[in-house]
Amino acid sequence: MTTATPPPSPPEPTTRATDHSPGARVALVTGANKGLGRETVRRLLAAGLDVYLASRDAERGRVAAGELGARALQLDITDDASVTAAAEQVRREVGHLDVLVNNAAVVGALDRTTEQVDAEDLRVVHETNVLGLVRVTHAFLPLLQTSPAGVVVNVSSGMGSLGRTSDPTAMESRWPSLAYASSKAAVNMLTVQYAKAFPTLRINAVDPGLTATDATGGMGKDITEGVQAAVAMALIGADGPTATFTDSDGPVPW
């Protein structure tokens, strides 16, 4: 496993893909009808990939995919049957998968203090952010392993970094978030364990940083900046890094 800094971000796209070339690399982005997921789809399409825009809400996903020129895929990562059906659809339509971006996540109740948060709060968040990631990764591993350069990008957070959340000078140390932060710490460990188990794949975690989305109430950097690390890692080749945690500036402490 390497610890290389991610490659430079690709230039901002000015066009979108509208066809599905049989020779194109195939990507799938979860939670992609809006926010970071949608922008990731847009960037990967512009880079020439054939992209599945996966969304829990089938109609919202269909509309977003139509606007971008992506393939719509109904996928509720908290539901085993939905995940199995989605993997079968991709297998039937294209027969393989080159890039999986595990982007779908929930923040949980932000108005509850650490003292107020209970096991049910954690269950709700971990069901999506942790178990959902495992469901999707497990289901799509056979398709990823047919790719000559299979890539998995797990969208994590600096809130899941033990280094940053324990550093009093870091922004992440000042945001109490028992459920969300613990779920993203679990995502980081899953990334390392999957990378060790599947050395032929490139499996990495990325931190978008505080980005202006619905989940942050519009606070943070522009969304085009927030996806840079995910897009860069999605576009690496078979000789790219694996088992790393990076943001757009480079390595992030675990």
Results as ranks from 00 to 15, higher is better:
209 G>Y: 03
130 V>W: 05
147 S>L: 06
139 A>Y: 10
60 R>T: 02
81 A>R: 08
124 V>E: 11
48 G>R: 07
211 T>D: 13
73 L>Y: 09
29 V>K: 00
12 E>V: 14
195 A>V: 13
6 P>R: 01
92 R>P: 01
87 A>F: 11
80 D>G: 06
84 T>S: 14
164 R>K: 11
47 A>P: 07
149 A>N: 04
56 R>P: 12
172 E>T: 00
245 F>L: 00
77 I>M: 10
216 T>C: 13
94 V>P: 01
204 N>Q: 12
28 L>R: 06
115 E>A: 15
64 A>E: 09
8 P>Y: 10
96 H>P: 01
24 A>P: 09
109 A>N: 15
214 D>A: 15
100 L>V: 08
222 D>G: 14
7 P>S: 09
194 Y>M: 15
81 A>Y: 02
170 A>C: 12
82 S>N: 08
47 A>S: 11
84 T>E: 15
113 T>K: 04
199 P>T: 06
61 G>Y: 04
245 F>W: 00
118 D>A: 03
108 G>Q: 12
232 A>K: 06
152 V>W: 12
251 P>C: 00
14 T>L: 05
77 I>E: 08
65 A>L: 08
71 R>K: 03
203 I>F: 14
76 D>C: 06
181 A>N: 11
99 V>T: 10
205 A>F: 03
36 L>E: 12
163 G>M: 10
203 I>Y: 14
111 D>P: 03
9 S>Q: 07
144 L>Q: 11
1 M>V: 15
117 V>W: 00
14 T>M: 00
127 E>S: 15
47 A>C: 03
38 R>K: 09
234 A>M: 05
56 R>Y: 11
238 A>C: 06
87 A>Y: 12
213 T>F: 01
238 A>N: 06
125 V>D: 03
36 L>C: 08
148 P>Y: 02
86 A>N: 07
188 N>E: 10
250 G>C: 10
230 A>K: 08
235 L>F: 10
142 P>N: 14
31 G>I: 11
43 R>C: 05
210 L>P: 15
92 R>T: 15
17 A>I: 13
45 L>G: 14
40 T>W: 15
29 V>R: 01
129 N>F: 09
249 D>A: 00
199 P>C: 03
54 A>Q: 13
137 T>A: 15
58 A>G: 12
23 G>F: 09
30 T>L: 02
